[in-house]
Design a protein around this nucleic acid. Structure first.
Lengths: 209, 209
DNA sequence: TGATCCAAAATTGGTACCAATTTATGAGAA
DNA sequence: TTCTCATAAATTGGTACCAATTTTGGATCA
């Protein structure tokens, strides 16, 4: 299973960037919260330097926002921005559909099916973070079928910018279950090689959230 | 006119990240070159700290690569990576065509035409960097017609990762002139509201370089 | 009572220094 | 001469300290 950030390191000493990001994703640091360097130092047991570098990186990724002499706070994407980012994801993930349809082998379909099932299973008793990871894995696997190794990271970056608090996104069980269904439907349509219906499903799937 | 980086600051004290990036774009630091912190300090008159932060940012953007205890060197995108990134740009810039066609006003067309002409004029006596900027401006203006404010930055980031040395890209005058022609042709097709031909032109235009 | 202003505490952010690692240099042996 | 190894120089990268700015808390005055 892959981590949320593309620049992960050995598991012995995870990057502070990763740790902070995970805590943002999990909802521990809600949108708007100020991230005080001293607190982060204490929480992750890292030096001031590493914390500052991590915050700068997250600011570059627009996950947090930097206000000079005041610090860093979790970014709050407004409606327009969130929509724009979602649209970019739609363009990218629908743009590769024909390629994915052409390249997907039976084995690939099996893997995708397994990932869709994993998400479905977590629907019942999984934590928010587990659901987030499982959903990520499914979409990553899908994207990787395009054969474009750079696309994965690009989409991951986009997703990080919208879903500052994934908690807020799947708030109803109905939506989670709907997502699980759509994952399966995506595999079905991929199996059927139905490019157009797959595209419109993906668009709905991304936009709904 | 906008700068190369999305996080530009007041012109009085441009960010070191910007300065280093420009020097990479201009070809002063060719792909593979090691960027020694001491040299950068002296060249830009900045403290060690700012240089290190700038290098870290460029490493995050994958413009340079970091090798622990050895330093940072200008990233060399291999063929596959460059192709993958180009393909992402194609997906994005063709993906918005129908929207751009729908939204472009007569004034927008005039602006685009002016930018195409500026690039064309620089074909004769412009520097590489001027050409780069003019080309950027044209494509930015085109993308902005989509109404998606986030797309611009996303594409800019992608472009930065391929065109580590734009010098190497427009090496022949023939190619530069070809680009200038294609810019005009893009405006023509946009004026004619010809979505499909515009898409295939954009694909050729991005791929050729 | 409530607003304003001043002083103290807290926080950020930069500078300088030093340790760890790598690279360059040169002496000595085959 | 050429290869190998040891020593010195250079470079990176982290830690600690301190200055600048902001925030907090409380005293003074209307």
């Amino acid at each position: 299973m892959n981590s949320l950030l593309d620049d992960s390191v050995a598991d012995g000493e995870p990057d502070a960037t990763q740790l902070i990001l995970t805590d943002i994703q999990s909802g521990l640091f809600p949108p708007g919260a100020w991230l005080k360097q001293i607190d982060l130092e204490a929480r992750y047991g890292r030096g001031r330097n590493e914390i500052r570098r991590a915050l700068d990186r997250l600011a570059q990724k627009r996950v947090v926002e930097h206000v000079p002499n005041r610090g860093y706070h979790v970014y709050k994407a407004d409606g327009k921005q969130a929509d724009d980012i979602a649209e970019i994801r739609i363009i990218l993930e629908t743009g590769i559909v024909s390629k994915v349809v052409a390249m997907a082998t039976a084995e690939d379909l099996g893997n995708l099916r397994a990932l869709a099932e994993r998400f479905e299973n977590l629907t019942l008793h999984g934590t928010v973070l587990e659901l987030y990871e499982a959903n990520l894995s499914f979409h990553r696997a899908f994207v990787q079928l395009s054969g474009n190794d750079e696309l994965d990271g690009t989409i991951a970056e986009l997703r990080q910018r919208t879903s500052s608090a994934p908690v807020a996104q799947w708030k109803t069980r109905a939506r989670i279950e709907q997502s699980a269904l759509e994952h399966h439907e995506m595999v079905d349509l991929l199996e059927a090689r139905n490019v157009n219906r797959l595209k419109s499903l993906i668009e709905r799937h991304i936009r709904q959230r």
